[in-house]
Design a protein around this nucleic acid. Structure first.
Length: 491
RNA sequence: GCACCGGUGGCGAAGUGGCUAACGCGCUGGUCUGCAAAACCAGUAUUCGCGGGUUCAAUUCCCGCCCGGUGCUCCA
């Protein structure tokens, strides 16, 4: 099955397919590692994760490159304030970034490319641009891209620059540029700032050049897909196209995918609005990593989504439904054979795949899975499910989870890491007290208490049994009695 | 100001020129249960921001208005 994906460049939904015999090349803009990632950042990485998992589901091999921007103005400023080398400063946030990705079960790209490790490639690109007359050096030693050298500028963001007049917003720092809209390729070293000694002078790279240099390094001069947040369309991606195509005279990326922004509680996320969340903020407040993952990916990437605490609670309930069902299904004692439920499971899988193949419509993809859960629960209630049905349903769930990845419970681990981090950072006061109470009880402790409750129930000592259940509930542990025995879960 | 995107039940959110407008959460009633939980059943939008238009037929296409969001140089 083909993946149909909206292409920002053409404004149409088009088939995304690799060249015969080659993996599909993806370059996705990664983080600037100057702070902890917020949920807006992670929405983008999560949606790209949905993309790569869907490609795999459809049998399309992937070569996915992500950059790490580990040198820029903010990094230099913040590292200087702490009196640290920038490498030491960025290492901390890069590590945190990958811990967060792991908590959210975002698969790692095949290739991680750090800007500071590709200075040579960037310098060579700037040299080639200079040879073409598309780059020029100013008196202070900085290099700029000459927009006038690239008439197609604006084709991605659909901007017509002919009506834009120079001079309106000239940065005082950049008075030497030929045109106010020319952008920096290379920034001349300022005293005390991190810099590299290169054939084009001492300095550091501008922001856009790293993505051109590193995508070409790992994916070639033309590649299949470039992805990122919608804010990057202009100027970042537009500038990448200008730089790259001015050198190669070939199409840079054939397909462009942009993830829409999210709102938080109906408003733009911002620190001043008080609705700015890092992943870690949410984890230590007691929200589960899986809930955050499901909430963020359940709205298709192409739609603006409203991230809310209520939405997180909803996602938690939805995941509980799936996990409870899965446990019930696995435990059930079934006779051999199969019923029409088997065909329903196969149909659900087909619908699931088709929805994802249709521009990654995750909302539509979820629906047949939940419908299947309801049908299967009904059959289990009526004792009408057979072993062959179960096999088919489990298979469908495997495909579902190969993209959604919320069935298995890894949440306690992610939460524990976040708590350890908060303690180490001196932010213990922000940790939800119930979370701490729950963690004080080990799985073995819970099992022991449940055994005691079962014994109490057997001797019809319901008062004691209910007391144990209430005690556990206070620590966020819920008990479910079933035919197959007692199940429990951490809320 | 200019450009683009969106407004669907209590909430979130798909979708379609014409079958009962998915799915999740919530709520109400019932079944089951020692009581719960889980699960199931039934109910929960005669209607898709407002006003026009096109059409045999519009929530779906067109126009206007109102509201929300985003972009307009380094923010995913």
């Amino acid at each position: 099955m083909n993946l149909n994906l909206f292409n920002t460049l053409t404004g149409k939904v088009e088939v995304l397919a690799p060249e015969p015999g080659k993996p599909l090349g993806i370059y996705a803009c990664g983080p600037t590692v100057y702070d902890y990632g917020h949920i807006g950042n992670f929405r983008t990485f999560l949606e790209v994760d949905v993309l790569r998992r869907t490609l795999k589901l459809l049998g399309i091999p992937v070569r996915h490159v992500m950059n790490i921007t580990d040198v820029d103005d903010k990094i230099i400023r913040n590292a200087a304030a702490l009196n640290q080398p920038i490498g030491e400063y960025t290492a901390r946030f890069e590590k945190a970034f990958f811990e967060d990705l792991d908590a959210l079960r975002v698969q790692h790209p095949e290739i991680i490319a750090r800007a500071t490790e590709h200075i040579d490639q960037m310098v060579k690109l700037i040299q080639r641009l200079a040879e073409n007359g598309a780059a020029y050096q100013t008196e202070d030693g900085s290099w700029y891209f000459r927009l006038a050298a690239f008439p197609a500028y604006g084709k991605l963001s659909k901007k017509d620059l002919t009506g834009m007049v120079d001079g309106a917003r000239v940065d005082v720092d950049e008075y030497e540029k030929d045109s106010a809209r020319d952008f920096a390729l290379w920034k001349a070293a300022k005293p005390g700032e991190t810099s590299w000694d290169t054939p084009i002078g001492r300095g550091r790279p501008g922001w856009h050049i790293e993505c051109s240099a590193m995508s070409m390094e790992y994916l070639g001069e033309t590649f299949d897909l470039h992805a990122g947040g919608e804010d990057l369309t202009f100027p970042h991606h537009e500038n990448e196209i200008a730089q790259s195509e001015s050198v190669t005279h070939k199409t840079f990326a054939r397909h462009w995918m942009h993830v829409r922004f999210l709102l938080v509680e109906g408003r733009k996320m911002s620190k001043s609005e008080g609705n700015f969340y890092t992943l870690r903020d949410l984890l230590i407040k007691g929200f589960k990593a899986s809930s955050i993952r499901l909430a963020l990916i359940s709205v298709p990437y192409s739609n603006q989504m409203n991230f809310t605490v209520d939405g997180l609670i909803d996602a938690t309930a939805a995941i509980e439904r799936l996990r409870t069902f899965h446990a019930r299904l696995v435990e059930a004692h079934l006779e051999p054979g199969s019923t029409e439920l088997k065909a329903s499971a196969e149909q659900a899988e087909t619908t699931f795949r088709a929805a994802l193949a249709n521009d990654l419509n995750t909302a539509e993809a979820r629906a047949p899975i939940f419908e299947l859960v309801r049908m299967a629960n009904t059959a289990l209630d009526k004792n009408q499910m057979l072993a062959g049905d179960r096999d088919a349903i489990l298979e469908t769930l495997v495909f579902f989870d190969s993209v959604f990845d919320v069935m298995e419970d890894h949440d306690a681990e992610a939460t524990r890491h976040a708590i350890e981090w908060a303690v180490a950072e001196g932010r213990s006061a922000e940790i939800d007290p119930k979370l701490m109470a729950g963690l004080s009880l080990s799985d073995a402790d819970v099992d022991n208490l449940i055994a005691e409750r079962t014994a109490a129930k057997k001797s019809r000592n319901f008062a004691r049994a209910d007391q144990i259940r209430d005690e556990l509930a206070e620590k966020g542990i819920l008990i479910e009695d079933s035919k197959e025995g007692v199940r429990w879960k951490r809320k």
